[in-house]
Structure formats: C-alpha cells, structure tokens
Simulated scan of single mutants.
Amino acid sequence: MIHFVVLISRQGKVRLTKWYSPYSQKERAKVIRELSGMILTRGPKLCNFVEWRGYKVVYKRYASLYFCMCIDQDDNELEILEIIHHYVEILDRYFGSVCELDLIFNFHKAYYILDEILIAGELQESSKKTVARLVAAQDSLVEAAKEQASSISNMIAQATK
C-alpha cells in the first residue's frame, strides 16, 4: 500500500501531497521535513529507495521535481517506480511536457489525475487512454458549469438594470 505521495522541488518546496494513511498536521510537517532533507541530500548515482521509519520511500527525479511515495517494507519498489513514471507520463500528455509551474498553477488537475490513478493507496487505473478520457470528461464538465454560471450572471446583470 502507498501511504502517501509527496512532490518536492529541488529547493525543498512541497508542490503536492496526498495522504492515504492518517497523520496529524504536525506529523505531516515532520515527515515532509525529514524526507525532503534525506532525499535532497542524496547523490544522483544512489538508488531511488530509502528505508525510513519501518517503511520504504521510493522516489524519482524528473526535471526539477522529486516524486516520492512511501510504501510498506514488503511492497515491490519497481512497481512503485512504474506508478511514478505512469503518473509523470499522464501529466506530460495532459500538460504537454509538464513542468513545475504547471503543477503550481494547475494543482487541482494534478490531484485529479493522481486520484484517477490511485485510490486508497492502491493502483486503480493503469491505462493512460482511460485516464486521459476521464480527465477530458472532467474538463468538459467544468467548462459547461463555467458557461452556465456566466449565462446566469449575465441574466442577473440584465435583470437588475
């Protein structure tokens, strides 16, 4: 099981977190501080697995972001690396060569895509096409809601004149 997902920039800024196990706010801050200190100081030639508090943390660096997932000791690290890569590929398809700024300004989309891939810390959808189709459907629903809200506000504005 994946206990949490954290995306950290090279400067140590947290760009995205998703918690699948219960942690208090104080514990979450401590976990992020510990992991970012541990992962950011590791050399690029070292392996992408770290043992931490009886768990394993699997991470992979893409451009300026570290994608980190905490798993149980007996889980398969290579499978988690594939899940991380799968998530990055879907982000790339959606944003067209995803960068850190895409995640900063469109964090809700990054969360939505992650929620389509993982549910309760387990892999839910392995098909990139299915995830892309679901995200496109969500985008069209959002656009329809924006248009409806715009038309309602226009009608109210005209009625109050």
Rank of each mutant, 00 (worst) to 15 (best):
E51M: 06
E51L: 08
R53Q: 11
G54F: 04
G54H: 03
G54I: 04
G54N: 04
G54V: 07
G54K: 02
G54C: 05
Y55R: 07
Y55I: 00
Y55N: 09
Y55D: 08
Y55G: 01
Y55W: 01
K56R: 12
K56L: 09
K56M: 06
V57N: 01
V57G: 06
V57Y: 03
V57I: 13
V58A: 15
Y59R: 05
Y59S: 09
K60E: 13
K60P: 07
K60F: 12
K60S: 15
K60C: 13
Y62I: 08
Y62D: 10
A63S: 15
A63Q: 05
A63T: 11
S64G: 14
L65Y: 06
L65M: 15
L65P: 11
Y66N: 06
Y66R: 04
Y66C: 05
Y66D: 06
F67N: 01
C68V: 13
C68S: 14
C68D: 09
M69A: 15
M69I: 13
M69G: 10
C70H: 05
C70A: 15
I71S: 03
I71N: 01
I71H: 01
I71W: 00
D72I: 01
Q73K: 13
Q73R: 12
Q73D: 10
Q73T: 09
D74L: 00
D74K: 06
D74Y: 00
D75K: 04
D75H: 08
D75F: 02
N76G: 06
N76D: 15
N76R: 09
E77N: 07
E77D: 14
E77F: 09
L78Y: 10
L78P: 03
L78S: 07
E79T: 13
E79G: 09
E79I: 10
I80C: 15
L81I: 14
L81G: 11
L81E: 11
L81M: 15
E82L: 00
E82Y: 00
E82T: 00
E82C: 00
E82M: 00
I83N: 13
I83Q: 14
I83D: 11
I84G: 12
I84K: 10
I84W: 08
H85D: 15
H85M: 13
H86Q: 12
H86R: 15
H86K: 14
Y87G: 01
Y87W: 09
V88C: 08
E89A: 11
E89W: 02
I90E: 03
I90R: 04
L91V: 02
L91Y: 04
D92P: 03
D92W: 02
D92Y: 05
Y94S: 02
Y94Q: 07
F95W: 02
F95H: 03
F95K: 00
G96C: 03
G96S: 07
G96K: 01
S97L: 04
S97G: 00
S97A: 04
